[in-house]
Design a protein around this nucleic acid. Structure first.
Lengths: 259, 259
DNA sequence: CGTACTATTGAGTAGTATCAAAGCGTGTGG
DNA sequence: CCACACGCTTTGATACTACTCAATAGTACG
């Protein structure tokens, strides 16, 4: 469990608000825009169409962030949450011994920064694992909007509640095999929910990142994956992954995921 | 790590809304009422005095719950969150192997049920570890109120954000000693924040509960406590505890608590 | 083609869990 | 009031999971 902060050299200021990477709110940007998912969810919570317009006025599309580039760092002043539009974001902290603890991986459609609301500063780092596009929501502004749009407020409450439960599950006491299976099945489901293949996908994170997330040693991650492959549960080549026996993996993961 | 659901025999319906245990909103009840803490926090967030009245209209004082009595159970329909006014509440789940996983202990002034907002049903059980009094807030009603009182909304956001961070810390990868020290220092600080002694207090939970919370075996909890005592960090007799060397305990807990 | 980094593999070990049994407190019934 | 029984806690001995250390292998990049 070594783990060192992957430092993407000199990044610009954290979570830039208006820089060259911000681009217009054009149709092309909206096509894969998770704001839509965000908006959809708010509509599902009862928000009306006019709210949609207000919400879209609020959002800023930022990116691309390149691999290794930080979106925000621990201690940066908190101003905004963001929905991932494309790519994968890793959030992590580094303890005083230099060990990295990965808090989570955030896929398209998922929201980062919710753990920063209590406090003026981000309590963790967020880094792009590949090319990342974001929808940025100023938190003061989206809060105000949430008082006017109950559907939006409800969606935010739900997102945060979900994160509490997810973190609690992740805190549970499980074997290396169970945690790895739960991690893979979790990825699979989240990708499937966004229209990606649930059985063939890329691990956008390094083995070390997986290890630091699952609180395992990198060597253990390697060994578990290899054993899973020997047992016919999956095929793994470098970062390319295919789940060849999802049912058995799910059975392993079931106690962790409670499903 | 055995852990079995402590079942307090036949409880009445979950989270009763109006029963014999509900009592009037009189001065005596309010004296130690965490609604006050809740209200204070909302005022600190900018809520005005009229909001205070609205909030107090909303709250229902329920209890007492006796030791072992359940406040809600996994699967019960979600209708309300609650602030602990007195006593200790344990939240936990039981996995399919019958192992109990303790999600948290909730002291006076703390709020339970926030992880249930996403979903129609409570995702966990809540049980009284001693005599517990609660302030119940109907969630639909407090949501509506939150759209009218930005200070209240802000407070709810903060509470939930804090829970996300807390759960993430708890999920970290630490030694038995570090986890135990962090647990004790955490208790101490939370008690101190409510005006109790930070150095002398009761462990209201069983060793098994502590073990299931810290994902340790009960035997390990015993051994660590005994070693801490041998090393002069604390004095423990049954459930009576005195921290005799808080600085050293804090040093142990520091990487976990990030303080 | 060489270098650097990440991933894999192997051997030995540390830290906790597990199993078994005894101790202690508390409550109960005689 | 005492004897007993039950539950929780403690203690000891042993086992096992996952870590650590060390070395090799494989990839990506210059």
């Amino acid at each position: 469990m070594s783990g060192r902060a992957a430092d993407g050299s000199g990044d610009p200021a954290a979570f830039p608000r208006n820089d060259s990477r911000t681009f217009a709110n054009d149709g092309d940007a909206l096509r894969f825009c998770s704001t839509c998912a965000f908006s959809q969810a708010c509509l599902a919570e009862g928000m009306d169409k006019s709210g949609l317009a207000d919400l879209h006025m609020l959002v800023e599309h930022i990116g691309p962030f390149r691999e290794g580039e930080h979106i925000f760092r621990e201690g940066d002043p908190f101003e905004a949450i963001a929905a991932v539009r494309a790519g994968t974001v890793k959030t992590y902290i580094v303890d005083r011994d230099g060990r990295e603890h990965v808090l989570g991986f955030h896929l398209p459609g998922e929201v980062i920064g919710l753990n920063a609301i209590d406090g003026d500063h981000y309590p963790c780092n967020a880094v792009a694992l590949d090319t990342v596009m974001l929808c940025r929501f100023s938190f003061p502004r989206i809060s105000v909007l949430a008082t006017q749009l109950p559907g939006l407020q409800r969606h935010l409450f739900r997102l945060m509640s979900r994160d509490i439960s997810r973190a609690a599950l992740h805190a549970g006491d499980w074997s290396a095999d169970q945690r790895m299976a739960a991690f893979l099945i979790g990825l699979s489901r989240r990708l499937a929910a966004r229209g990606f293949s649930p059985t063939r996908f890329q691990l956008t994170m390094a083995r070390t990142d997986i290890a630091n997330y699952l609180r395992l040693a990198p060597e253990t991650v390697s060994r578990v994956l290899r054993r899973f492959q020997r047992d016919g549960l999956l095929q793994v080549d470098r970062r390319e992954l295919e789940l060849t026996d999802p049912p058995r993996l799910q059975a392993l993961a079931a106690p962790v995921l409670r499903s």
